[in-house]
Write a protein that binds this DNA or RNA. Structure first.
Length: 929
RNA sequence: GCCGGAGUGGCGGAAUUGGCAGACGCCCGGGACUUAAAAUCCCGUGGGAGUGAUCCCGUGCCGGUUCGACCCCGGUCUCCGGCACCA
């Protein structure tokens, strides 16, 4: 067989041969490099390497050349097979060069050498590169930070995930990547950055999964955390992994329980029997914040009201401070607004109406000015006086009243909201109210449009000036008296304007005043007469803190028949969750813990007698209300956080998280923090100096991602196909960070293409000169300015666009070593693995993530010459190029000299010219007389 | 109903003390290289008219201010998010 035939044969077999042979070769190479690796990891990596070497990947335009010269390559793989422990590429090149000094079959040696280099050239093998750097960062603890270092501190925080069995979602990747970019940039700015991660692991899904599969929730949690950790590591986040917290760790929840005991000691935790939100499916109490559209936030099942004895936290005591201190922090406006609306402060007055049976009925109103127009009263069906009137037999229509009460109680919140179009109610026969301003007797109704839980549970009704009262009055035939003039006929619609347009009428001493003036006047009058005073009310309710579930922090309280509720002694904390046989919630609404008689029965810490433990557990929001403090000092066994660590790191400088937590976690944690501030545990009144929020990631085409639609994007899949750097770059480039964005696989490919172009630019071309090249200098300075500002402003999409444009410039102009250095520094927060690899290959020294962030020179961001638009009568007609420091006169002269402008100026007189430096010049002509 | 946000090419989106609308990317079309495909590279790409230089139209809609408006003002429509009988 002639040599050429051999080659042909090999050529035909090339494609089939390359994979197994290459696989074997790569396997041994990797084995040699990583002696400790497992067999499967090596196998996997070698396949990736083969894929990266596969000629069709990006070198196909030379493939026929390769095919004609594939003898060296066949040889390469054979050699690698027989010489697995040596440096393969070295042997191959020496072997090929010596056997085929002229490049095989008549080709020039130089061409062959080039081809060999092409094939051997380091491909952008993201799988290997990412693994390499992740391992390195981990082993070298590159991102571990020290408390107290003499650098400006920067505490960047993202919301720790609930480690569900579904694993990490692209919805996590967006905020995490964003803050990772910021954290990496700030590190390069020379700051001491704390960027931690942890797990909010108590919660219902884990418990439900445990029930279904008969696995202990702790085991489920452990597995899920391991999975989440692996997934997070794959994304290359610069977390300080030594500071991980897990809310289900007894060393952690010991302090959650400790905080509860402090709240109890200060009277901010109390047990109360009250109607609570009860999820019919979870068989569990919900906080108001957890009820969405009358259903359970988690499962969507209907929520009904149920009387239960619950632990409550007095968040209402902090309502005013939670509003006021929003002025002290840098939260995005919509977060502030939503919190304020949720707390719902309203000012008005409490007024006492006498009942004909002698009781004082106190009502709350924001419109005391309309008191003369109050023609009836409404009590909520749950109002305490109704019970006493019924008991005393004061009500002639008792049956009707009782029936109404029952109907109201059995309605779910959903039904109550649905029915809000049509007002219902019952007039109380036998009792009336007396309007304190004029002594008039007015009827009293009960109606469920008055809520038991807001204000005093009773209102005075002014149908002429309130839409709801008007609607009710029309239906029940109550009198409508106008007391504020200026609107339309109040018999046709209520006039509710509260501004200067209304003048008081039919109101004796208030007549003639504006509403604005009447409010203080009547309030003063009420106070003098002792029948009312000004009053502030909040929509915010106290926080229902008990859950009848297993997988939560046990509430460390003990009930003694003799001594009442007693706190568990602090030195006995943590109160561990006991092992139980069944985690199933019970139908009677008691916690699964209540079945654990060994655990429940204890002794009273006060009198030593027999006592029982509280069997409810805390809600999921407990552990997350203070976790950011624990990161500062997570191994401390004696304190929640040491004074030194808290003083150094607190408060969190920048906290990014979802809008869905605005009235839940964010509000709760502000409340707890303020409490901890009051008792001297922390040194700042607010936990977070800055709060930003990201938009949701939607599925392809802008529809919501969901398992049922099958359009959920798994970050792992994206990483396997395109690499973590592409994933990171894409999720930052996807659109405006604050807005929702739809996933697009094509756009992911675009980002991969961008990174490929950077890689090829760095590895294909020769870069000479450590300075910025003349051609790119101004673009680089501009880019540094833009990228620096954009990262701080969370405009990641335009930061990446700037870098893409810079790479385009580098391709067009060529790039010096200095140019490339700047590019890698700026790109490194987004694509850290690739940048580390290229940084190392170029021999710049050290880790790119530990370099100083590049600086820009403002004067160099402007080019020497600028193009300016010339407008004639407001329309762009021409473009001129002038030097950047030209005077206005020179610019106008240059504009007039432009042939197109000159033509338009013929027979005209210039009457005005406006020069905007560096942008445009506007000329206004008028025809010559 | 109340509060907040947004309306810009085929798509995601750029551009603001009022200064060349559509950066950057995707899609699409054409070309180079391939037996071919993929990949890569180059060119084009808001709409319309014209062989062409060029001209006209264009930032939800109507009007105003201005040399000049996506941007400011008045009015109006639509969409998204949150809250919702809170007295």
């Amino acid at each position: 067989m002639k040599p050429f035939e051999t080659v042909s044969l090999l050529s035909n077999q090339f494609k089939k041969a390359v994979t197994p042979l290459g696989g074997v070769a790569a396997f041994f190479m990797l084995w040699n490099e990583n002696p400790g690796s497992t067999y499967s990891a090596l196998l996997r990596s070698s396949l990736c390497r083969v894929r990266a070497c596969e000629p069709s990947e990006s070198l196909s335009y030379r493939r026929h050349h390769i095919a004609a010269n594939d003898m060296p390559f066949a040889a390469m793989f054979f050699v690698s097979f027989f010489a697995p422990y040596s440096c393969i590429s070295y042997i191959i090149s020496v072997y090929c060069m010596s056997v085929y000094p002229n490049g095989g079959f008549g080709r020039k040696a130089v061409e062959t050498e080039f081809q060999i280099q092409e094939v051997f050239k380091l491909k952008y093998d993201f799988t290997a590169i990412e693994k390499k750097w992740q391992t390195k960062w981990k082993e070298e603890k590159t991102f571990a930070c020290k408390t107290g270092e003499d650098k400006p501190k920067f505490y960047a925080l993202v919301e720790f995930p609930y480690p569900s069995g579904n694993g990490l979602h692209v919805g996590h990747a967006r905020p995490y990547t964003a803050m990772d970019v910021v954290a990496r940039k700030r590190r390069m700015d020379g700051q001491n950055v704390l960027f931690p991660m942890g797990f909010d692991a108590f919660g219902l899904p884990t418990e439900n999964y445990a029930i279904k599969n008969h696995i202990h929730p702790a085991k489920v949690t452990e597995d899920n955390i391991a999975n989440f950790t692996r997934q997070l590591e794959m994304l290359g986040y610069s977390f300080d992994w030594d500071r991980v917290v897990d809310t289900t760790d007894p060393n952690y929840y010991k302090w959650t329980q400790w905080i509860f005991l402090q709240l109890w000691k200060k009277g901010l935790a109390y047990k109360s029997t009250m109607p609570v939100n009860w999820c019919t499916s979870c068989k569990c109490v919900l906080a108001n914040e957890e009820v969405v559209d009358g259903g359970c936030e988690r499962c969507g099942s209907p929520v009904i009201r149920k009387e239960k004895s619950q632990w409550m936290l007095k968040i209402t005591a902090y309502a005013q401070r939670l509003i006021d201190d929003l002025d002290e922090v840098d939260f995005i406006e919509r977060v502030k607004v939503q919190q304020k609306n949720w707390i719902g402060r309203s000012t008005g007055a409490e007024v006492t109406f006498k009942a004909t049976t002698g009781e004082d009925i106190v009502v709350f109103t924001t419109r005391p000015d309309t008191l003369f127009g109050a023609t009836y009263m409404v009590l909520s069906p749950e109002h305490e006086f109704i019970r006493s009137w019924l008991d005393a037999g004061k009500l002639a229509n008792a049956d009707e009243v009782i029936a109404y009460q029952k109907a109201a109680a059995s309605k779910s919140d959903l039904e109550r909201t649905e029915l809000n179009k049509e007002k219902t109610g019952v007039k109380l026969d036998g009792v009336a109210g007396i309007n304190p301003v004029n002594g008039k007797q007015i009827p009293i109704f009960i109606s469920d449009y008055v809520l038991a839980t807001y204000g005093t549970g009773a209102i005075m009704a002014v149908p002429a000036h309130d839409d709801r009262d008007w609607e009710f009055a029309k239906k029940f035939g109550c009198e409508i008296i106008e007391v504020v003039s200026g609107g339309e006929d109040v018999q046709q619609a209520a006039f509710t304007a509260k501004d200067e347009t209304g003048i008081m009428v039919n109101s004796e001493f208030l007549n003639g005043l504006t509403v604005k003036d009447a409010i203080p006047a009547i309030t003063k009058w009420l106070e003098e007469k002792g029948i009312g005073q000004s009053k502030v009310n909040y929509k915010l309710r106290d926080w229902v803190f008990s859950r009848q579930r297993y997988w939560g922090e046990p509430i460390p309280m003990i009930w003694c028949d003799k001594c009442g509720w007693q706190p568990m002694p602090e030195e006995q904390l943590p109160l561990l969750l006991p092992e139980v046989e069944s985690y199933e919630p019970t139908d009677d609404g008691e916690s699964p813990l209540s079945k654990m008689t060994d655990w429940v029965n204890t002794t009273c810490p006060c009198c030593g007698g027999a006592a029982k433990r509280e069997t409810d557990t805390m809600p999921q929001w407990a552990g997350s209300s203070w976790y950011f403090l624990r990161y500062m000092d997570n191994h401390n066994n004696d304190e929640l956080v040491s004074k030194a660590a808290e003083n150094y790191w607190g408060p969190v400088d920048w906290y990014n998280g979802g809008m869905e937590h605005t009235t839940l976690h964010l509000l709760y944690s502000r409340f707890w923090h303020k409490f901890l501030y009051d008792i001297g545990v922390v040194s700042t009144p607010e936990p977070y100096a800055k709060r930003t929020s990201h938009g949701m990631i939607l599925g392809e085409g802008g529809i919501k991602m969901s398992k049922s639609r099958g359009n959920v994007v798994n970050p792992n899949d994206v990483i396997e196909e395109f690499g973590a750097d592409t994933m990171r770059t894409y999720i930052m480039f996807i659109g405006d960070f604050e807005k929702a964005a739809a996933w697009s696989t094509n756009a992911v490919k675009g980002c991969k293409r961008f990174l490929d172009r950077v890689w090829n630019l760095a590895t294909d071309q020769e870069h000479v000169g450590d300075e910025y090249s003349k051609a790119n200098e101004s673009a680089i300075h501009k880019a540094i300015k833009k990228v620096s500002e954009d990262i701080e402003a969370m405009k990641f999409n335009t930061a990446i666009a700037t870098l893409m444009a810079l790479v385009n410039d580098f391709y067009a102009n060529g790039a010096s070593r200095g140019d490339m250095k700047a590019l890698l520094l700026m790109l490194s927060p987004f694509a850290p693995h690739m940048c580390e690899e290229l940084w190392e290959m170029a021999g710049y020294g050290g880790n790119v993530c530990l370099q100083a962030w590049p600086e820009y020179d403002e004067t160099k961001t402007v080019s020497a010459t600028v193009q300016m638009a010339v407008q004639v009568s407001g329309k762009v007609k021409a473009n001129i190029i002038v030097s950047a420091d030209s005077s206005d006169e020179e610019i106008v002269a240059a504009a007039l000299a432009d042939p197109k402008v000159a033509k338009l100026a013929e027979g005209m007189t210039l009457i005005k010219s406006i020069v905007v430096k560096g942008k445009l010049v506007s000329l206004i002509f008028k025809p010559q007389a």
